[in-house]
Design a protein around this nucleic acid. Sequence first.
DNA 1: TTAAATAATATGCATGCACATATTACTTTC
DNA 2: GAAAGTAATATGTGCATGCATATTATTTAA
Lengths: 233, 233
Amino acid sequence: MRSETGNSWQAIRTEVLRRIHARDWPPGSLIPNEADLAAEFGCARTTVSRALREIAATGLIERRRKAGTRVAVAPSRRATFDIPVLRTEIESRGARYGYALISQGLDVPPPAVRAGMAVPEGARLLHLSALHLADGAPHVHEDRWIDPDVAPGILTVDLGRESANAWLVANMPYTDGSLSLFARAADAGLAERLGCVEGAALFCMERLTWIGDRAITHVQLSYAPGHRIATQL
Amino acid sequence: MRSETGNSWQAIRTEVLRRIHARDWPPGSLIPNEADLAAEFGCARTTVSRALREIAATGLIERRRKAGTRVAVAPSRRATFDIPVLRTEIESRGARYGYALISQGLDVPPPAVRAGMAVPEGARLLHLSALHLADGAPHVHEDRWIDPDVAPGILTVDLGRESANAWLVANMPYTDGSLSLFARAADAGLAERLGCVEGAALFCMERLTWIGDRAITHVQLSYAPGHRIATQL
DNA sequence: TTAAATAATATGCATGCACATATTACTTTC
DNA sequence: GAAAGTAATATGTGCATGCATATTATTTAA
């Protein structure tokens, strides 16, 4: 029995995790309710609740009112990654950050971008191409589309000096966004800009941000070969 | 003033986020302390605390005792991804799940794996190669190394029938793990197994799990071309 | 028998309070 | 004036309580 002292929500979390891993509470099973656990651990229900809430945030258990708490059957584990700001990422590795605008203009976006941003067919968006450099070497290629109807101020900015991202962050706070990760092969243009061979496998990130129901910008970041992102489980 | 009713920690979170995005509280600035916010919102300090804790979990604000709460300068946004169990992922798309063991044997791992798992040079590990299929088509290639000293039972399992992952999940609860994402080009073997062209850019996931200070297994999953994972911001 | 109303139940949330802990600012002592 | 000690402060945690809400089980009515 462990109705002793020395409890905290973290200790309870640890014990619950132990029981799940040890299969005392196998996947799919219903675990005791908060009140019972509180009694067993000799603490307040609030404390048990806190511990279970934290575990639920990782996807290992599922909680529903009245239904109770059960161990996830298919533990679709949630993993949290730090998506650092490029400048910070580069500088934190002791390298000098650099930004180089390659091209800018008003273009009709390709279908994939047009669909993602939900803009009418034939509409022209501000199209930017730029490089983020670490000690002068290409680190990430940025391909960005901005809807000038949503962010009109962007057209008055000198994008050679201030990066579009910096301006947007400061002037167009978004309400929603999505992020997706994938791999793509470097085409001729990307290979030249990133200084890698054509066809090299690149780790890519695509970000889409919205103000209400209007898309502000669509960015595809292509990292130089070898990049990875990591997290603890 | 908003000392009205209708407050909840979520409403407070929303309002705090609004102020941060609207730059009422610019990056790097110190925001009012919990007690003051509680007074302003007309709620308990606990409620404010809950709201701020949730925001802090996303990396947008940083909190330190006595120092107070400040808006993160370099908002290294944290994004949470669902890393689904392969079987579930495939079946949830309405496809039939299949598993095919390609090879198994005791081999000396390559340096990268050996270093990651911290096993002595020359040690032999169980090496598996397998495919996860969706409606018979290759979806993911799995390249796995298991330390039989840490998980001896694995040697007695018929891995053609029970997947190594299933057995490990059931029998070797891990205490720590890491996950990393990257891109790689398909070599000849991978291309043949996944049914894609050699050199195709593949989205890959590498997982390493530990019991205490001993590595159990190292897995590299290579997804068929086109795979992406996504999340909301 | 089926449908609707009602009760029971487990989690979710909010509150007021107390105390813990980390950190900073200040004061005292040598 | 520097070091050591002390107070002040903001967040972190725990508890008891009460009510809210979603969901299931049961009972009652058509």
